[in-house]
Simulated assay, not measured.
Amino acid sequence: MSQIDLNDVARLLAVTEAGGFRAAAQRRTDSASALSEAVRRLEEALGARLLNRTTRSVALTEAGARLVDRARPALAELAAALDAVSGDSGRPTGTLRLNVPTFVARHVLPPIATAFLKRHPGVRMDVTAQDSFIDVLAEGCDAGIRYEERLALDMIATPIGPRRQRFVLAAAPSYIAERGAPAHPNDLLRHARIGHRFLGSKALAIWEFERDGEIIRVPPEGPLTASTFEMQIAAAVAGLGIIGHFGEALAADLATGALVPVLDDWWQEFSGPMLYYQSRRHMPAPLRAFVDFVRAEGRTASD
């Protein structure tokens, strides 16, 4: 077997994660042709086809899938070791890869990430927004952000962003004028409900209410279900139905009166998001810096 260039293995991973050569090239400094040549070299060195190529997509062969499954965590560990060494100078350098829910990517992480990157100019942050729960290490990420009920038990968790949040229901004044306001969560079954589908998943976000020991779950079935917040909020403002969402996502429209509260005596509070990561003897320098930054910000916010 010919000598293997680990950079070519990394390029193969980039192509499979992006779903094609052109998409991978947009995320890297390599051109699509350079990525294709790297995969060809790797196949030639291994004596096995790794990708089935069509004009529109690429798919791993059985041999390619085996290689990717073994190589992804190995390369992640190698990157962590290099980052640990590079961080010995006291100024962390390298890439911090995070997997976060779409809501967190829009409403929680931006100010935290901006402040962190200004403080640590040697660090690059690569954020993937995805609502389904994944094995962050297997996907080549350093850490993830999720809510408490979806955290893996063997992970370390640190609060990030708001400590408490609320699930808020709202509708346009025009909708309330036409259909009336529900007085109880069970009344929602007679109303148009705008639903949220988790990005990267087929799961629908069920509305849940609890008061005085009574738990009521309502499926948000109605004229629109979407994974994009913009479509849901625009539909609600236009009077298409009642929307249920994180309070932060609806705050601006509630403040202007474009939306009005619905069933606010049933709104539920819940714990805010958590930064989670696996305990390692040699934590990558960018991750260590980010964890320390988040903890420091949390202590300042609680003072």
Rank of each mutant, 00 (worst) to 15 (best):
A84C: 03
A84V: 02
A84H: 12
A84T: 11
V85E: 15
V85S: 02
S86E: 14
S86A: 15
S86N: 14
D88W: 10
D88A: 15
S89R: 12
G90L: 10
G90K: 01
G90R: 09
R91G: 06
R91I: 05
P92Y: 03
P92T: 05
P92H: 02
T93F: 01
T93I: 11
T93L: 02
G94S: 04
G94H: 04
T95P: 08
T95H: 05
L96D: 03
R97S: 15
R97E: 08
R97Q: 10
L98F: 05
N99E: 13
N99V: 15
V100G: 00
V100H: 00
P101A: 05
P101C: 03
T102Q: 06
T102F: 01
T102D: 10
T102K: 05
F103E: 06
F103I: 05
V104L: 00
V104K: 01
A105M: 08
R106W: 00
H107R: 13
H107W: 13
V108H: 01
V108G: 01
V108Q: 03
L109K: 04
L109E: 05
L109T: 05
P110V: 09
P110D: 11
P110S: 11
P111Q: 08
P111I: 03
P111Y: 02
P111L: 05
I112W: 02
I112Y: 06
A113M: 09
A113I: 08
A113G: 07
T114N: 12
T114C: 08
A115H: 09
A115N: 07
A115W: 04
F116E: 01
F116A: 02
L117I: 10
L117G: 01
L117H: 06
L117R: 13
K118P: 01
K118W: 11
R119E: 14
R119C: 03
P121R: 07
P121F: 08
P121K: 11
P121C: 06
G122M: 11
G122F: 12
G122H: 10
V123I: 12
V123W: 08
V123N: 08
R124P: 05
R124E: 14
R124L: 14
R124G: 09
R124Y: 06
M125D: 04
M125E: 09
D126G: 04
D126S: 13
D126F: 08
D126Q: 12
V127Q: 01
V127E: 00
T128K: 12
T128N: 07
A129Q: 00
A129D: 01
A129N: 00
Q130K: 12
D131L: 03
D131P: 01
S132Y: 05
S132N: 13
I134G: 03
I134A: 09
I134Q: 04
D135W: 12
D135S: 12
D135E: 12
D135L: 07
V136L: 15
V136C: 08
L137R: 14
L137T: 14
L137P: 03
A138D: 11
A138R: 13
E139S: 15
G140R: 01
